[in-house]
């Protein structure tokens, strides 16, 4: 299946510890298995400590691309946090970019220390919608907390991604991959998180 655009540059952003690396590898593995060339670029290490983190997942039916996404060349931004979505749009946005965003904000420490103020939910939502071709915002954290599994936000977002239809991902194959990627006793919980994310975006 041809990708549009090709290479398809998926940016997955969030805060260290939210599980964006697992999410990027899940998507990478699924797209590789579907026959595409995939490169994932990550930076981690110091960035884990409360800083913003992001991965670039570059998918192509033509050839292997390097892991660094060129500026302004994002195809879709998946962000586990809305301020980070805006940061990614600033760097990688373009008139055709799409965004799937967890609307639950996490305050940078500079906000706690009163050196900066965190934008309102309304301002962030408006800017995200304005600067993207299409955007899906929903509270994935709330869903994860309802399941008593705050760290499952990334899997809720994966469900959301499948529901957007942006990538040729088969819902059942994704579910199998989720099941295979987590310890057996957490499989049911993660599958529920995955389905709840799918429903949230499909119903939005």
């Amino acid at each position: 299946m041809p990708l549009s655009p090709d290479p398809y540059n998926l940016i997955i952003s969030g805060i260290g510890g939210q599980g964006n690396i697992l999410l990027s590898r899940l998507v990478g593995r699924l797209m590789f298995r579907a026959g595409y060339q995939v490169s994932i670029g990550e930076t981690f290490g110091a960035a884990q400590r409360g800083g913003g983190v992001f991965s670039g997942v570059r998918i192509s039916s033509k050839r292997l691309y390097g892991p660094v996404v060129p500026q302004g060349a994002g195809s879709m931004i998946i962000s586990l946090e809305p301020l980070e979505a805006l940061r990614m749009i600033s760097g990688y946005g373009n008139p055709g970019v799409k965004a799937l965003v967890n609307s639950e904000g996490i305050h940078p420490v500079a906000v706690l220390s009163q050196k900066a103020s965190y934008p309102s939910d309304e301002a962030m939502s408006a800017a995200i919608h304005k600067a993207t071709d299409k955007a899906w915002l929903f509270n994935a954290t709330k869903i994860a907390l309802e399941l008593d599994a705050p760290i499952a936000v990334n899997i809720v977002m994966l469900g959301g991604l499948v529901a957007t239809g942006a990538l040729p991902l088969d819902a059942d194959e994704v579910a199998d991959e989720v099941k295979a990627s987590v310890p057996p006793h957490l499989a049911e919980l993660n599958l529920t998180a995955y389905r709840r994310g799918m429903q949230a975006v499909a119903g939005a």
């Binding site: 400590r49 409360g50 800083g51 301020l83 980070e84 805006l86 940061r87 500079a110 900066a116 304005k130």
Partner: peptide, 13 residues
């Protein structure tokens, strides 16, 4: 409309 909202997210413990 986007850049003015983007505050930095420094590292912390």
């Amino acid at each position: 409309e986007v850049a003015p909202l983007v505050i930095s997210r420094g590292l912390s413990w």
